[in-house]
């Protein structure tokens, strides 16, 4: 399988990244919470006993509305190109779910919010998952050749 070549988009990516940061800062300013996709999703779906799920579902609804809002503004849906097979989606998704539950966070929670707070746990978590991802992509694409 040949990987899909993607265009280098420094401006769009930096602008999108800045918006991710704006959302993280707004959630802290208004709600006093870390913007971590793992924590928000877990708190919304897992029975935790806490009666404060509504705000998480409101956040999730806003997140899911993102692509449609982009379509309304630019006239086209953001590209979602999936260069892998269905079994890989399922295995990858399952491993992501197991991993982020144990690590208590993912790219948004540890990689953005935790790193911005200079949390040692988040810095180590981010370095670990970035390294694991690089090694995995290397093995999948250049050793196994999937």
């Amino acid at each position: 399988m040949t990987p899909i070549v993607t265009e280098f988009t420094p401006l769009a990516s930096a602008f999108g990244g800045a918006l991710i940061g704006v959302a993280a800062v707004l959630l802290m300013t208004f709600g006093g919470r870390i913007f971590g996709a793992t924590g928000i999703l877990s708190g919304a779906i897992l029975p935790s006993g806490a009666g404060d799920r509504a705000w998480r579902w409101a956040l999730l609804a806003g997140m899911v509305s993102g692509p449609l809002a982009v379509q309304l503004m630019t006239g086209s849906m953001p590209a979602v190109e999936i260069p892998i097979s269905l079994p890989m989606i399922i295995v990858g998704g399952f491993l992501v779910g197991v991993g982020v539950n144990f690590s208590s966070g993912c790219t948004s929670g540890h990689g953005v919010c935790g790193m911005a707070r200079l949390s040692p746990r988040s810095i180590i978590a981010t370095l670990t998952f970035m390294a694991a991802t690089i090694v995995t992509v290397y093995i999948v694409r250049h050793v196994i050749g999937a």
């Binding site: 996709a37 793992t38 999703l41 999936i82 260069p83 892998i84 890989m88 989606i89 295995v91 990858g92 998704g93 399952f94 491993l95 992501v96 779910g97 197991v98 991993g99 982020v100 539950n101 144990f102 690590s103 208590s104 993912c106 790219t107 948004s108 540890h110 180590i124 978590a125 981010t126 670990t128 998952f129 970035m130 390294a131 694991a132 991802t133 690089i134 090694v135 995995t136 992509v137 999948v140």
Partner: peptide, 16 residues
């Protein structure tokens, strides 16, 4: 957990 997350991310290309 971070390592397992990274393996999954490298397989599927999606993070949460």
């Amino acid at each position: 957990g971070s390592a397992v997350f990274g393996i999954g991310w490298g397989i599927a290309g999606f993070c949460p």
